[in-house]
């Protein structure tokens, strides 16, 4: 799940981790009530500073995606559908914004980009 954690990216590691987790919950990869790995285990697994994991978990707890229960661990909360949908849409917006910026840098026009998207989506659907 965390293969794309990139220390070289300008985004702080905790934010990358939080973002990935947020999306996992929104997309249903992580089910309500599911236990997340302990701070200790995840930090060791990813070889990141434990404080990074703590901050990601805390941020998500603050946003209502996770619940940190003293002594028991960290668990996924039952997030309402609407919330999950808006999270996915938010992530999609981020992706699109990045795509548009990249296209602009490469000299691809918005129309060209739009056609390419439709074609790819059509190809995927069939």
């Amino acid at each position: 799940m965390f293969d794309h954690i990139d220390p070289r990216s300008p985004t702080p590691l905790y934010a990358q981790l939080a973002s990935r987790l947020r999306l996992a919950v929104a997309a249903g990869e992580l089910r309500p009530g599911e236990a997340l790995p302990s701070v200790r285990r995840l930090a060791a697994q990813l070889r990141v500073n434990p404080a990074t994991v703590v901050q990601a978990y805390r941020d998500l707890e603050h946003e209502g995606f996770l619940e940190m229960r003293q002594g028991a661990g960290t668990f996924v909360r039952d997030v309402p559908t609407g919330r999950r949908t808006s999270e996915r849409i938010r992530q999609a917006t981020v992706l699109v914004r990045q795509l548009i910026a990249d296209a602009g840098r490469l000299g691809v026009s918005l129309d060209e980009l739009h056609s390419a998207i439709l074609e790819e989506m059509g190809a995927k659907a069939s």
Binding site: A44, N49, P50
Partner: peptide
């Protein structure tokens, strides 16, 4: 991983020198 595991328990300080910049990048604060 073993080092991080130990540090996760809390309290220990780590002073690590390395050439492998990217390794440090993940772990160090």
């Amino acid at each position: 991983a073993a080092l991080i595991d130990y540090v996760s328990e809390g309290g220990a300080t780590v002073f690590i020198s390395s050439h492998l910049v990217h390794e440090l990048e993940r772990m160090c604060d």
